[in-house]
Design a protein around this nucleic acid. Structure first.
Lengths: 210, 210
DNA sequence: GCAGTCATGTGAATTTTTTAACAAGACAGA
DNA sequence: TCTGTCTTGTTAAAAAATTCACATGACTGC
């Protein structure tokens, strides 16, 4: 098929497929059908086949999908078959948790520089990285080949952080701060706030109750 | 309107509206139109009015929405106009970051107990809470009125943690571990994995590139 | 080499979600 | 009180996503 526009929901599901497939592989499964995978992911099997069809034909009729091969294909499709270098802005609670989170590199993302405007933090070393002032972003970004910016500042500092990232020609931004930011529209932004999920749970519980 | 089925996407957007409205309020805005709010949230204004219509009529024609009032109404609609007591299982990197995250209570969720099966951790005190063995969940859950379970274990321990939570009659689960879990279907589960968003950014950057 | 079985890839049908359009209600100023 | 301007709530139209259904291709065993 190899289509033009791909639903955002599809991207989200591909991430789920990868997760489940990696666990399947670890448990020694070499081949899997869309039906089985669908059950493991709690989705419809047509959904899976259609999601994959956006990117190519990865299966074998009458057989299913070779797990390792499929993982590789999905990663290629998403563009995560390589390492993306990231800049972190804001080394507070959230920021330092991210720096400690060693899954980053395994999953294809590497935090290569940490920035914070707090004078008490500048100069400190954290997880083998020196914290520097965000004004240095502009010179460091090209040097270090930074492509993705991670904002983990307080909400009122998020826009300033975004401005620094835009100035530094970063290509995409992920914002952990609980506020919206404005950037030129060619730069994709993703907002992360896990309270969304807590709200969803609270809502579902409340719903079932009356 | 006051409808039956509410799209999941609507719940996600309501969370965004709250975030933006709280920032607007902080900046001294008392009233806002769906059009202005829509711009701030990067959505369509009809979308906002429709999302709100699922739950009631919160605005004034010709005027707009009173910000504080709307925040309250949305929170009531979601069931987050009260404190939800949570149990955390898994006090590793992610788990301890969650315990340190002081926004929890401000946002209506309180982690009241922390569990881990690692003998080296059991008995330790962390952020004013004693880490106990998950086998105690069943007795502590009713005592402490725990309603939501937060799983932050390694992936291969997630199912066991889920089982403990189900046994303890928990009403909803949020899973930070990168693996799927099986629970009775009356218990809502939400999966949190911020790499989803990193994948989405990587994909969008790659897409724009060729 | 042929029959039977299985599971993919895909076009068509269905369902869901989003957007547009407008009638009805609220306020301000004269 | 009446007129004009806003902005909501809602119905109708459009767009998008999901599910169904099946023809097509692949492998197994005889």
């Amino acid at each position: 098929m190899k289509s033009e526009h791909i639903p955002k929901a599809t991207i989200g599901r591909l991430a789920v497929y990868i997760q489940v497939l990696e666990n399947l592989l670890r448990d020694g499964n070499d081949v899997i059908s869309s039906e089985k995978l669908a059950q493991a992911c709690s989705v419809n099997s047509s959904q899976i086949r259609k999601d994959l069809a956006y990117f190519g034909e990865f299966g074998v009729r009458g057989v299913g999908y070779y797990v390792q091969e499929l993982i590789t294909s999905i990663k290629q499709s998403l563009g995560i078959d390589r390492v993306w270098k990231c800049a972190l802005i804001g080394v507070g609670n959230m920021g330092s948790a991210l720096l400690r989170h060693h899954d980053f590199e395994r999953r294809g993302f590497k935090i290569c520089a940490a920035f914070d405007c707090d004078p008490d933090k500048i100069g400190l070393e954290f997880e083998g990285m020196e914290i520097v002032c965000p004004t240095h972003l502009r010179e460091q970004a090209p040097e270090l080949n930074l492509e993705i910016g991670i904002i983990a500042t307080p909400p009122d500092r998020a826009q300033r952080a975004a401005n620094h990232l835009v100035d530094a020609n970063i290509r995409g931004i992920i914002n952990f701060a609980p506020s919206r930011i404005n950037v030129p529209k060619h730069i994709p932004v993703e907002y992360v706030d896990f309270f969304d999920h807590l709200y969803a749970i609270a809502f579902q519980i409340t719903l079932g109750n009356d």
